[in-house]
Amino acid sequence: MLDWSIIARYAPFFVTGAWMTLFISVFGIALALLTGLLCAAIETAHVPVLRQLVRVYVEVSRNTPLLVQLYFLYFGLPKLGFVWSAEACAVIGLGFLGGSYMAEAMRAGLQAVPEAQRENAYMLGFTKAQTMTRVVVPQAISSAVPGVIANVIFLVKESSVVSAIALADVMYMTKDLIGMTYSTYEALFLLIVTYLVILLPISILGTWLERRFDHARR
């Protein structure tokens, strides 16, 4: 059913594609984490005007598809003079989308720490900074980790859309192989295997990290 010689011939292309997927994902997720951290900090600290802006950003980013965000960045914004490469667009797009998801996960983590603990820490003479670093953040991390990891996996999967702005990722290679040789089965086989190779380790690592950070249960 599968022609292994075709698979052997085209496997290197999928390795290249996988690197592109990983490259975009790593930078996109890093940007998403930074954005998320910033937004969560602004919301928790109740910074007046910025807080409303963050709310707007989160709603817009969560309620529009990545593909449309990418088309707008890649085809639309150059008309205003913002010309950027496809790679930059993909990273910014993924960061824009992921930032809101990360912000929600981190905010939920921070809110999971009961207010009473903060008050108790102040009462015991902790400064604001000490309360944050010694009491709130360690617990917030442990309850935010599962959400953050789910978002990481979600974003790697979402990165499959970047082939639409001509980046040679795994999906792009699949389409190319089907289009050039009609080797549909082999292409789909390579597609599934490549994504499993990328995503299974992340998923397993995620489960391990979740357990590692589950301070409440240890």
């Binding site: 999967k157 990165s159 082939s163 699949t174 789909l188 597609l191 599934i192 994504y195 499993l196 299974l200």
Partner: peptide
Amino acid sequence: RIMPQLALLFIAYYGLAR
């Protein structure tokens, strides 16, 4: 859950026909 939706779409669109 582990496959990107676009990959699932490709599998259904190209794979089933074949």
